[in-house]
Design a protein around this nucleic acid. Structure first.
Lengths: 227, 227
DNA sequence: CGGTGGGTTAACGCCAGGTGAACATTGTCG
DNA sequence: CGACAATGTTCACCTGGCGTTAACCCACCG
């Protein structure tokens, strides 16, 4: 997965040095040599990160940053500047910058910061998938074949346990431990929860994903048509 | 809107100075004085940002950071260190840090970086958007489908918190912390505010954006028609 | 036949959450 | 100063979802 970056910098030598180094590490670079051009480029197409020099012809870096944010652009912005003054840093952060690096800097550090910025924003979609069954862990939603499933908290726990194990079967004890930890309730509560989970997951579909292996446990993901 | 922060730092004097300053700016601080304690605290409860010293007793900052990420914790982490060596910076970023600040630093810069990290779509001093719901942060106005919404200060804080988290759900504790910081009121005040927020946001529309996931929390942005 | 492991269904009680109104606090303006 | 509006807080009550229990069903196997 390539990082796509925009560098706005008027010093041609510095720009070339930076771009050359970044391209070697696998970062794809666009380049603009003045503020106005940078703004236009940033608005015209998507970048994962923007590097902004502050002292630029036509429009300075802070103005570019401010205008981008005013347009609703949320791309992570790293300010580059030879100005080490506190006031410049504060001004940059206040117009919406995400990081600030003082020249001269070491190129590996720049790369590390670029990576950190692009990762944070990439919305780590935390999901599990088995066949057409999808669990979105961060949004806490489950869906099958695009249709959203309604799960109770216990049903969710149960399904998560099954999906993590899939395609291996999970025995009764492990499921009980997943829900209640040490102190198990008596009676056949687990059966009821499993039943409800089946209704939620398999009811409206031709293929049953939840399978019981008698004497072994329950398994998710074996592909068998329903009888 | 309170930022909730964890400082892991063994130098008591420095820690006190930092905490005192941060609290003045409205940032609520937890504090751990060694790596192991810091790790436990970070795993035990939610923070918006974590400040990690590198040279710590029991477990150094990079190890803490690494272990946190291995546990799936994605809280933004800012490394603080007197080490200015490139190798230390690179090592920190490679274990999942988001920023790195060399001691001694100026407190206002620290605050600016904390803010940038905690606002998830940071800086973007301007708009938050979820579906047709838009918050204009600079003008402090919210609208849905073009129609302006009337929000009380608390309602605003609540909505901002939900929008920043969206589509992830936010639990009760985090909402309470966002409004009141440390000192929570008793009784069911939060319920009332949520109720009013719902009236303001969802009352006149066919699609309800605010949804409660029983036992989990409240979520913004699930697209479901109202019953 | 009855035992055993599992499936199905209905009933019950608890409690997190929802609701509307009353009360308290603050600030503004005539 | 006093009235009023806007907001935050508290209270009492309602509701529905969820977890649990129990009772019954079925199929397979000795």
């Amino acid at each position: 997965m390539h990082i796509h970056l925009l560098l706005v910098e008027d010093n041609i030598d510095l720009a070339n040095t930076v771009i050359e180094y970044l391209e070697i590490t696998g970062i794809v670079c666009d380049h603009a040599s003045n503020g106005q051009m940078g703004l236009n480029l940033a608005l015209a197409q998507h970048h994962d990160v923007i590097l902004l020099d502050i002292l630029l012809p036509r429009m300075n870096g802070q103005q570019v940053c401010k205008k981008l944010r005013e347009h609703g652009n949320q791309t992570p912005i790293l300010m580059l500047s030879s100005l080490d003054a506190l006031a410049d840093k504060l001004a940059s952060f206040s117009v919406g910058a995400d990081d600030y690096l003082v020249k001269p800097f070491e190129l590996p550090e720049l790369v590390a910061r670029i990576r950190a910025l692009s990762l944070r924003r990439s919305g780590q979609a935390n999901r599990l998938q088995v066949a057409d069954l999808i669990m979105d862990l961060s949004a806490r939603k489950a869906s099958r074949n695009g249709q959203e499933l309604h799960l109770s908290p216990t049903g969710w726990t149960l399904l998560e346990c099954l999906m993590r194990a899939s395609p291996a079967p999970v025995n009764r004890e492990r499921l009980e431990a997943a829900i209640w930890g040490d102190k198990l309730p008596d009676s056949n509560t687990l059966k009821v929860h499993m039943h409800r989970l089946r209704k939620a997951v398999d009811k409206d579909f031709a293929v049953a994903l939840i399978q019981t292996l008698p004497g072994i446990g329950v398994q998710l993901g074996a592909i068998c048509a329903k009888g």
